[in-house]
Design a protein around this nucleic acid. Structure first.
Length: 258
DNA sequence: ACTCGGCTCTTAGATTGCTT
DNA sequence: AAGCAATCTAAGAGCCGAGT
């Protein structure tokens, strides 16, 4: 699904072709997920688009959804778009989308087609626009900057007994994100808005901030950014084999005031 | 002929988890 | 502790053709 065009019909962002269900065999490295695509036990190397870890899951044995790539230059014919922590073979599993770069395309569709009405109803949407010393994902109607984040390192879902986990590492860097937010606030002119979209490609009931070693410091700089006018919104998407819908979106800004 | 524009193709860089 | 893996993007190189 890397370059394939998305369309939107009503409230649904539609995949160009339906995703394919498969079972994960293993993840040998950062980029590859070996999957059994047709249930025969044959393994196919699929691209893993996730930039970091997926919760602390061991993916082996979990069901997943694949998109077929039509790029002939690719070595892997499929991209893993989602995984499920439900028991393998479950009838209608809850999917957890893992393609963070695809989220930007979903958000673009959502903006253009007014699927986030509480935030903004866009007339024009520009991508990758500079603000201060950074580039923000979108500039909407010349006055609203939108930055998309899709955290996957701490999945906030219940795990059944069949799911194995690995020990969680000491939680590296929310640092870059915080720095980004800070710059966002400082670069803002009076008539402009900046919106940080915290996106989930699954049903996350309430975004929780996990305490880190320098939690207070982080809270302080985020609070400062909020003071400077940055808004923080949570967007839950719901993904199935045919497309993506906005399940809900809500304003979290108040939680980050000091 | 020479230059400039536009197009295409190539290449370098960024992106880290997992296994041995 | 070290090496491996694939994709996307941006920037650069190279090429061809047209216009002056």
């Amino acid at each position: 699904m890397s370059t394939a065009a998305l369309t939107t019909q009503g409230d649904t962002i539609v995949f160009p072709e339906p995703l394919i269900r498969a079972r994960i065999v293993r993840r040998p490295n950062r980029f590859i997920i070996d999957a059994d695509v047709d249930g025969t036990g044959n393994e196919t190397a699929c691209h893993c688009p996730t930039t970091g870890r997926i919760g602390n899951l061991v993916l082996d044995g979990l069901d997943c959804l694949l998109s077929r790539s039509r790029n002939p230059a690719r070595k892997t014919p499929y991209t893993v778009e989602a995984v499920s922590v439900d028991a393998p073979g479950t009838g209608r599993p809850a999917w957890i989308g893992i393609n963070q770069s695809a989220v930007n395309r979903y958000v673009e569709q959502a903006l253009v087609h007014h699927l986030l009405p509480k935030i903004v109803t866009a007339h024009t949407v520009l991508r990758e626009q500079p603000l201060g010393s950074s580039r923000l994902d979108f500039l909407v109607d010349d006055d609203t900057y939108v930055e998309v984040k899709t955290p996957l390192d701490n999945l906030q879902v219940a795990l059944g007994d069949h799911v194995r986990t690995r020990p969680s590492p000491p939680l590296a860097s929310t640092d870059r994100l915080v720095k980004h937010i800070g710059e966002l606030g400082r670069g803002l002119k009076a008539h402009q808005r900046a919106v940080l979209l915290v996106c989930f490609l699954y049903d996350n009931p309430g975004f929780q901030v996990r305490p880190s070693s320098h939690h207070d410091e982080v809270r302080a700089s985020v609070a400062q950014a909020v003071q400077d006018g940055v808004e923080i919104w949570q967007v839950n998407f719901r993904l199935d084999t045919t497309g993506v819908r906005v399940a809900r979106h809500r304003d979290l800004t108040g939680r980050f005031r000091s």
